[in-house]
Nucleic acid binder design. Sequence first.
DNA 1: GATGAAAATTAACCTGA
DNA 2: TCAGGTTAATTTTCATC
Lengths: 156, 156
Amino acid sequence: MSKPELDDTDRHILRVLQTDARMPNTELADEIGLTPAPTLRRVRRLEEEGIISRYVALLDPKQVGRDLMVFVRVTLDKQTKQGFETFAEQMRGRPEVLECYLCLGDTDYQLKVCVADLDAYQRFLVDVLAAIPGVRNTASTIAVKQEKYTTSLALE
Amino acid sequence: MSKPELDDTDRHILRVLQTDARMPNTELADEIGLTPAPTLRRVRRLEEEGIISRYVALLDPKQVGRDLMVFVRVTLDKQTKQGFETFAEQMRGRPEVLECYLCLGDTDYQLKVCVADLDAYQRFLVDVLAAIPGVRNTASTIAVKQEKYTTSLALE
DNA sequence: GATGAAAATTAACCTGA
DNA sequence: TCAGGTTAATTTTCATC
């Protein structure tokens, strides 16, 4: 918590680590123009404050056979707090659902789902989504080709 | 290229590194039940084959002031190869566009856009998207709350 | 920001199925 | 022969000054 004061050096660190989370601290220090000790202190502070939430390895979906990405817009029958929490809870428990957002407008939830193929997606739609009480309608947009993918947030 | 043969140990490694990319090799070795040397050899192989595409730090969007996530469906005027490539190229050059997919159905492109606030989003819509020749229509779904976010692909 | 002890990485070599 | 284990030199981390 406290003040998420980020100076230029912090942003520089974040920019680098968003691209290469495994860069050794010595090299990172070199890159941002400090010595290793203060660099490490800054990184630890960014971690402790939760500005860096975690470090992950990104896999090539094709090579692990998870090549089909689908964006799903879901509307629920009744907009009760209960129904919403149940739905979100179900999504958290499904490994093929990578992202789930509560939304404004016609769409109640926007999902990003990653599965092996259309067959697996059809099963997700029928056995998982349609089986959740309160789901009124779903609209799926099937991705054919990934033109861009990054997890890196631009820090002006 | 070659054969992306993954055995149970490989999948175990990938599962762990997708959750914590910075786990020391010694600890990873312990976790998967091998000694450090063969563990490291497997990790290097997964990196070289591109199965692990990269290691990244994930930031908390709130704490870096990029709190507004928007999913945009875009349709283009003419479905010419030229027009599509131009559009994709523009998206690759825009830091607020985190993801861009060519899609089946009514939607030509599905975007995931991350900006600071509605004001910044409006500027993106008007100055960037609408300014690209061939963009016929856009439909934005504004995310209010992130219920789930992971980059981790389930490896059965 | 510098120093040095402790830990992790990694290459070279060994072993057994 | 191939995957895993062992060892030891190098590099990195990180607490203390």
